[in-house]
Design a protein around this nucleic acid. Structure first.
Lengths: 189, 189
DNA sequence: TTATTAACTAAGCATATGCTTAGTTTTAGT
DNA sequence: ACTAAAACTAAGCATATGCTTAGTTAATAA
């Protein structure tokens, strides 16, 4: 019994994510969220408890979205370094051309959340650990390597991926492509 | 005639920089600045005009500080890739061990300033262009290279430098060192 | 139909924000 | 000593913030 929700939770969460992604945690006000999510403040608090909880849910949602829209090819068993390149270039150009709200929300979280809340830290660290595993597989499928070198190479690519969210904000598309090609090519040699 | 300033402008600017560096632009309130700079709000506004102007002055001050404390060896005529490594490792460990307020203020500016004010953009871009020139010289002093490769290599190292401000926040000191060693060694090979 | 429950609306609360202003103190030139 | 100019103090202003609450509407179980 009781009235039924007038909105779809997954849908408003997606909108909240876009709102946070664009502006970051602090600069996104509850009035912004109200407008972007299309529901009243009361409904936000009744459903998500607090702005902070909503941010964490948004960050998890971001991870799923990135998985769906960018990491698919890297999840295939036979992925290789060309898939790494494609992923990095696609993501970097999305940033440079303003196709996505504001570079990488994971990186933004590392940068913004001052006290670096342990829950957020956990989400971020796991995100990059999973990315590292995908990169390691791609390397293994491209060049024969010792485990030690494989790990070093994967860590290296994670670092490159992180650099992209800054690099892509201040460099031209052609520089971005050169940068990624150069970096990924360092693995095979 | 008129009363004389009770404070040293360079000194309070340094304190303002530390305040902004720690918390970022938005999260630093004028009350924070008042406390950290040790002067009244009126004096802040009388001397620096606005919070935004003060931030820009702080960012320039940051550049000079980084030059003094980290980039000295790279400015020498005979600097080489080992100096690049030393710089990156020193800076990265300063971040990881919390010796400096909050990773790189230039990178933070790229990430935080939403509309990306053109003045700030200019400061940031020039900062990384100067860093690139220092890296290029260091590469040239270490390995013989064509101009094209030299530029690629220097761009690559700038990217690595940018990645460090995120990487160092979520990785251990030994991982950070491995990452930097691995990355810089990719140049010589 | 009616009672109960939950989602809705909109107004409101305490506090924080960037910046200003009224009024006071200190300096230097006459 | 007197006056003008500039730096100081502290209070204040309009607005924005995260979150709550009083009151209304809608859905279901009896």
């Amino acid at each position: 019994m009781g009235r039924v929700k007038q909105f779809d939770e997954a849908e408003v969460l997606q909108r909240a994510m876009l709102s946070f992604w664009k502006r970051g945690y602090e600069k996104t006000t509850v009035r912004n969220l109200e407008h972007d999510m299309g529901i009243n403040q009361f409904s936000i608090y009744a459903t998500f408890k607090s702005k902070e909880q909503l941010y964490k849910r948004s960050l998890e949602n971001y991870q799923h979205q990135l998985d769906r829209e960018f990491l698919g090819p890297l999840r295939l068993a036979n992925s290789d370094l060309s898939d790494v390149k494609s992923f990095l270039i696609k993501f970097a150009l999305s940033i440079a051309q303003g196709k996505i709200p504001n570079s990488c929300m994971m990186v933004n979280s590392v940068r913004e959340i001052e006290h670096f809340d342990p829950v957020i830290r956990k989400i971020v660290v796991r995100f990059f650990d999973e990315m590292k595993a995908l990169f390691a597989k791609a390397i293994a499928n491209s060049v024969p390597m010792k485990d030690r070198s494989l790990d070093e190479g994967a860590e290296f690519l994670v670092g490159i991926a992180q650099s992209i969210s800054i690099y892509s904000k201040i460099k031209s598309p052609s520089q971005i492509k050169s940068y990624i090609n150069f970096a990924v090519d360092r693995i095979s040699n």
